[in-house]
Structures are given as C-alpha cells and as structure tokens.
Write a protein that binds this DNA or RNA. Structure first.
Lengths: 119, 119
DNA sequence: TATTCTGGTTACTATTGGGTAACTACAAAT
DNA sequence: ATTTGTAGTTACCCAATAGTAACCAGAATA
C-alpha cells in the first residue's frame, strides 16, 4: 500500500508523497478535519470505501503520525480518531488543493447539485 | 489509472484528488517545475519509473490540462513537456507539502546525504 | 552496413489493490 | 433466546496496475 521505494527515498519530497500520495488518505484526512470521529462515521461518510481499506489507511496514517486513535474499552467497542498536530498541519494544504481545483477545473455540468461532505 | 468514481464525484475536492492523487503525478509535476523538459530527461531524473508508466501519467496530465506537450517533427523525435498555467499553479502546493514534511517528518538517519533531484 | 538516437507502443507477466462475505467479542435490549 | 451494535480481522478472489523486454521509424554517424 505504501511504496517502500518512495518511503525510503533520500528525497524528502518523495517520502512525503509516499506517505500521503494516494487517493484515500487526503480524503480521509479531509473528512476527519478538526473533529473527533468514530470509525463507523468515516465509513459512512466516505463514499465507496470498504471497511477493510479504511482500516488499512487509518493504520498507516496512525503509523505515520498523522492521526491519533483512541480506543475505549467498552462493549460494543468505540474508537475515535482525530488528527495529530502533523495531521492538522496538513489541512491547509488540502484547502489550497480545493481552491486550486475550483479555479482551474474545466467546467462540467454536474448531474446533481449535491456537493455534500467535503464542502 | 484514474479512478472514475473519484473523477465523476460531485465533490470537487474528490475530483481534484482523482486528478493528482497518486504517487507519480506530484513527482512528475515537481520535476518539470518551471522549465521545458524532454521525455527522456524526466525518465532519467525520476527514479524507478518505467517509460510505460511515465507515458501514461504524462498523457493523463495533459488530458487534465496540467501540462502541454510539444512534439517536434524531427528524427529522432523530440518532445518537450511544460506545465500549463494550471500546472504551474499547483507548484506552490507541492512546495507547502515539502515544508510540511520538513517540519513534521519523524527524524530518520539517512543512508546517504544525497538529497538529489527534488531539492 | 550496422549502430545510435528518441519517444514512444505492444504483448506478456507479476504484483498489488481492493471487493465481498463471514466471523469475532460481549453487553444490552427485545 | 435472539437480535443488535461496533470495530475490526480473515480468507478468498478478481481486477487493475506496474514491470520487462522487444519492437518501431528513419536520419545521422561510424
């Protein structure tokens, strides 16, 4: 899932891309944002992601220090995820990607006017 | 290569990630930077990329309006790539990713002090 | 005449990613 | 006694991605 050749590169930029350069991670980070959120909520909000993949991505994000995982020893289990300082520091970058896209994306006729979740 | 579910999302952020959210594209955009560069040069500079994949990525970047391809009708052929306005506008985002990584990456002992290519 | 040069393309194969469904623990509610 | 709820994990399988090597044009060079 993470490409070792990227993560072990001696170019720090390449390593950064190795960490966050896939399609799910920016989406997940963006969904979490500044709040604390449970596994099931992320799963419900992010379209098309399977629990298996979500688990994997969350685990990697935690390993890479982008988010913190807080498991309450209850039954049924409850787990909350929130961004670490490093993860929070990444949010402005996602904002600038949004602005960039807004400015330069070729206009297309949207099927619905529903711009939900990532507003 | 591009995920249709992402590119056809009605969330503009998701679409943006569908466009540039993979490991090769940020690297390629970063390597091109503000210069005009030939196919062979990119291939030589970017580590581990195969010509096949490079071709595919460049084609998609062109389709998405991030770069311009200028083919000289010579023999042997010469093709130059350079970023479009949209592509150039993405460079500052890559810079902020570099800064973010520099600030937050967990320190690791580099095998070599060679930080070539993406400095 | 053979080789080199460039920017690819193609066919074939290996690797990986990702989807699905079943399963877990255990308590509370029905 | 059975269902519900949560946050996963596991096994199995298929589709997508990426790597490799061979091949192309056609002029210039040796």
């Amino acid at each position: 899932m993470r490409d070792d050749r990227f993560c072990n590169s001696n170019c720090p930029f390449t390593r950064a891309i190795g960490t966050i350069g896939n399609k799910w991670k920016p989406i997940i980070i963006n969904v979490i944002g500044t709040r604390s959120i449970r596994f099931g909520q992320i799963d419900a909000i992010v379209p098309h992601i399977s629990r298996k993949v979500l688990t994997e991505q969350l685990k990697e994000l935690e390993e890479d220090g982008l988010l913190e995982r807080l498991a309450y020893k209850e039954i049924p289990p409850r787990v909350e995820y929130k961004l670490s300082e490093k993860g929070l520091a990444f949010l402005p970058i996602l904002e600038s990607i949004k602005e960039w896209n807004l400015k330069y994306e070729v206009a297309l006729i949207p099927k619905e006017t529903d711009y939900s979740y990532a507003g």
